[in-house]
Amino acid sequence: MPECLVNGVRLHYEEHGQRQEGRAPILCIHGMSSSGLVWGPSVAKVAALGRTIVYDRRGCTRSERPEPYTTSIAQQADDAAALLRALDASPAVVIGRSYGGEVALALALRHPETVRALVLLEAGLVNLVPEAKAWADGVLARVLAAAEREPSDAAKALVHEILGEGGWEKLPAPLQSMFTGNSPAVVAEMRGGFLEAEPEELAKLGIPVLLVASAESPPAFRQVVAAMGAAIPNARTALVPGGHLIDLAEPAVLELVATAIQGTSTQAPNR
């Protein structure tokens, strides 16, 4: 099982696809409560474009979870930067979903030399939209309250908030088990706080950025995507069907990645 010692923590990672001269690698960063396993067969579709790295963030599933466990977006972004450097995979086209999208954005802001392009699947930069921030604060309070009552319920409570009534029950049993096992990571990540970045910081991003929102997710995500799209000069947006667990292999994502790994600035069109 491939592991890499990063900032004092062992991270599990996998490599798919082939290294190709002149093409940037692709790094996939999963969201809260999950792991690299959550991407499923979609990894193969991305890896058909080139070298693709998926990993479990610190505290999640197959990677090390220090005890006592605390973390932050900044720490997670620094881990991603160190992993890219250790694997000689920088700069990369970075895809992040939800909390993983916040990590990907923080990576680009903190370590710009490691990122060639960004694909953010409903990254929750909620400080840009007061209504979204109020909603996210409510989610945080309810999930932490559930964890106080029963620590292993943190992930289930989070899924209920994000996917809605019946969302947990629709998940396959292996996903439910993985999410439940990551409940301590959910608590640590929520206590570590959301990413905050001002429009002035986002305006300095000089790389291609694709912002993807889902038509069936809570409205806060679409509000945030719109605000981020207005702030980032090179951003394009795409609205896709389905809920928050946006497919890694959405056509808009594959289109952006296919051009960005070659170092061109062509991006997926607005949809």
Rank of each mutant, 00 (worst) to 15 (best):
E3K: 15
L5H: 13
L5N: 12
G8L: 04
G8Y: 02
V9F: 08
V9R: 03
L11F: 10
G17E: 06
G17T: 10
R23F: 04
P25S: 06
L27F: 07
S34K: 04
G36M: 09
L37R: 15
L37S: 14
V38T: 12
V38P: 02
V38S: 12
W39C: 06
G40Q: 14
V43F: 12
A44V: 00
K45T: 00
L49F: 03
I53C: 08
V54E: 09
Y55F: 15
R58K: 09
G59C: 13
G59L: 13
C60W: 04
R62Q: 14
S63D: 11
S63Y: 11
S63K: 13
E64Y: 10
P68C: 10
T71H: 06
T71G: 12
S72I: 05
S72H: 01
S72W: 00
S72T: 14
Q76A: 14
A81Y: 05
R85I: 03
L87R: 10
L87G: 05
L87P: 08
D88K: 13
S90G: 12
V94M: 11
I95M: 06
I95S: 02
I95R: 01
G101N: 05
L107C: 10
A108S: 14
A108C: 11
L109W: 06
L109A: 04
T114D: 15
T114H: 03
E122W: 12
E122Q: 14
G124W: 08
V126P: 00
V126H: 13
N127K: 12
V129K: 03
V129E: 14
A132R: 03
A132N: 05
A132H: 05
K133R: 15
A134I: 06
A136Q: 09
D137F: 01
D137Y: 00
V139N: 05
E150Q: 13
S152V: 12
A154T: 01
A154G: 02
A154Y: 02
K156V: 01
V159R: 02
E161G: 01
I162A: 03
I162E: 04
G167T: 07
W168Y: 03
W168D: 02
W168F: 03
E169A: 15
Q176C: 14
S177Y: 00
S177D: 14
F179P: 04
G181S: 14
N182C: 09
S183L: 09
S183H: 06
A185Y: 09
E189T: 06
R191H: 07
F194D: 01
E196G: 03
A197W: 09
A197N: 10
E201H: 07
I207R: 15
I207Q: 07
E216S: 14
E216T: 08
P218C: 09
P219W: 11
P219G: 11
F221P: 02
F221G: 00
R222L: 08
R222I: 01
V224G: 03
V224Y: 10
V225L: 01
G229I: 10
A231N: 10
I232T: 11
I232Y: 13
P233I: 13
P233R: 14
A235M: 11
T237H: 02
T237D: 00
A238C: 14
P241D: 14
P241K: 10
D247L: 13
A249K: 03
E250R: 10
A252L: 05
A252W: 01
V253Q: 01
L256Q: 15
A258V: 10
T259P: 00
T259K: 11
S265Y: 08
T266E: 07
A268W: 08
P269I: 05
P269Y: 02
N270A: 13
